[in-house]
Design a protein around this nucleic acid. Sequence first.
RNA 1: GCCCUGGUGGCGGAAUCGGUAGACGCGUCGGACUUAAAAUCCGGUUGAGGUUAAACUCAGUGCCAGUUCAAGUCUGGCCCAGGGCACCA
Length: 824
Amino acid sequence: MKETYFPQEIEKKWQKIWQDNNSFKTSDDSDKPKYYALSMFPYPSGKLHMGHVRNYTITDVIARHKRMNGYNVLHPIGWDSFGLPAENAAMKHGANPETWTDENIKYMTKQLKMLGLSYDWDREVTTCKPDYYKWTQWLFLQLYKKGLVYKKEAAVNWCEECGTVLANEQVIDGKCWRCDHVVEKKYLSQWFLKITDYAEVLLDDLDKLTGWGDNVKTMQANWIGKSQGAILKFKVVEKDIEIPVYTTRPDTAYGITYLVVAPEYKDIEALTTPENKEAVEAYRANARKMTEIERLSTERIKTGVPLGTHCKNPFTGEVFPLWTADYALAEYGTGAVMAVPTHDTRDFEFAKKYNLPMKVVIVPEGSEEKPLSEAYTQDGVMVNSNEFNGMKNTEAKKAITQKAVKGGFGEFKTQYRLRDWLISRQRYWGAPIPVVYCEKCGIQPVPEEQLPVLLPTDVDFSVVGKSPITTSKTFVETTCPVCGGKARRETDTMDTFVCSSWYYLRYSDAKNDKMPFDREKVNKWLPVDQYVGGIEHAILHLLYSRFFTKALRDIGLLDFDEPFKNLLTQGMVLKDGSKMSKSKGNTVDPDEIFENYGADTARLFILSDSPPARDFDWSDAGVEGCYKFLNRVWRLIATNSENIINDYKIEFPLSKENDNLVRAVHIAIKGISADIENDFQFNTVISKYRELVNTIYDRCSLKKIVSDEDKNVLSFAIITLLKLMAPVSVHLCEEAWYQLGNNTSIHDEMWPRYDENLAKASSITLVVQINGKVKDKIEADESSTEEELKNIALASPKIKELMQGKTIIKTIVVPKKLVNIVIK
RNA sequence: GCCCUGGUGGCGGAAUCGGUAGACGCGUCGGACUUAAAAUCCGGUUGAGGUUAAACUCAGUGCCAGUUCAAGUCUGGCCCAGGGCACCA
């Protein structure tokens, strides 16, 4: 065995063997329990980055560890390959998006194989291929039939840079999630998925997801934004119009002093008197001009104008003015707000500015009514509210709403922030929405047997201001599936998040050409046992996928209601304290690391310095350190290879029960197994590899390995080390295993077992404290009784000295650990 | 403003139940080997005081209190950093 470690040589050799043998193919028929390990599939942008390396290494180690523990593991990969970058590249270089995408997939596949990932490549899925998007379209039709798809004219988010609309979830701080361009409002007719039908269950079922972090769950809960309150209806005095408002504070209904409608409110023109028309029109025009960012700024002073008309408070008979102000949002609730300046900070601010009256209706318990310098928004006792006076406001919420229900001017109402998912995109490179518009029959879904609706190839990518797909005559002009007459095909394609909302289901049956997946297979493999990916998908992808799973269950395509049982959100990969990015110029190219150090070093390092969920700071010195460690492991095996016996025997009980190396191996197996079970703490797993290697080196340097027993113990230690390291250092361990004379794969070996009695030190260090401070440490027998430990402690010369002239108040003995003597 | 994370040496980070704070590594310092360097191997490395050297002493896990024989860990109140949401009535 060569004493020098040549990773590049070893890695190439085994990668070829694994590929030729299809070593990681997963069988659907196996007696073993199933385990589904999944990484979020990549967008084929061109090259892998370190975030990918981290993500896929983590999942790969999990998959390999489970395989060694007797599971039938599904560990697939695929490509989220529709999307704008391909189309932009096509426009820039005059190429076809498909060619660009295919080339990227080819290159990145090569890189994934160089990383030594144990994928079942037979299940690869590519969302931009007709054999996949056919089923995306098919699923769209099933949702359509179920009434979960609709088209409507609405104010939508428009990104001029991308030339398309965006879902609410894709607008970050008023800007486009992809290009950072400011998002505008446009009125367009677009396709929506009714995710709001599932708002309640998407929220409730978060409780079932015990394997998800609280951070992700709260983000989803906040996004769904459930609130409970009431709808109260107000009659307009001057017109025959009723204005409903949504409020979470019906308890303040007796304190209303004005009412606000959004500038976009549907009845606003009818509610405006001729004298106020000019001012209102000007205000509305100005509101339209403002960007979302300007309008949402909390720094901005609130503005508004009166409409000139009035409303009547059904509780009090009081009449108060109607205003329009842009702090009322058209899209939330009813678009109208009842204003109670005394108990709402926004209304208070507004009323102050425009000198509108205020009326206190809640006071802190046990205190008198007095003028307010700011809104009182806490709980208290009702005043100035007729029959509700003296009641706690928390009770009045219900009581006042009940009064409104009885009087026919209100009802209980649960409101969500979540909006329906806008899936139309005015782009070419996406799955075509399978719908046609017939002059006679209207909107008609494409019949299932006509799927897939293929993307056209006679397309002019150089057009500006409209989707390239509209330039294809063969695509746009079609016939109606109902009457056979002239019809026009829908030119919008689907948001790529639709494609990625079901790909994890397709892996269970990736080659099915009759259905998106076989029901039995999907139920066998799903839910995903461990999902690994970036936190940036906390809302978008994870919420959409949960929605899809629930909707498909209700349609009857599958039998589970949550797709991802456990979720690990990995931290970012940083360099010099900030996120690796091309613009900062602090990226590290995985190819260079593979070339200079090998994939095993990259894998080891990316797992070693931080727990998976935390951010990871890349350092060149750290890479170097890991490379040295692998060299050290290799040297350890190479220099001892003639002393390593594959069929070593260690008799239990050991002839030398106190052999510290045997114990160290058992301790390592126990500790490493536990660290993996406990949230995949690979950083401590690796520190335990190092500890074990150090202990083996100590043994070899302290004594010559000559006797059979020495050889047995050393062989046990080294072979166990190789098995423990096999999931991480996949090539090195395979090669060493082979060099030691094995003709099987180490990756088919069983994970080592440990003996509880040997997985601990042979003696204990007794800590002796006086008044809680450590004063002495004494080696003691592990089996000592509490009384014996106490006596050992008291017999210590140091302790004796410190106790002179003092009296013992009490002695605490923690078995096998510590004695604390309390003295005065 | 609200919500979620986190705060431990020069650095990344360890520390099942409250029970030896700083595992393991990086960096650094010293030693061995070498003509020399690299590589490798061995050892020191929280701070302050103390000693020829040790022993030893004190302080120490963002801050302030509390519970306890004992607190990085539990409780209450703050401060700071990162992330999310935000005129959602």
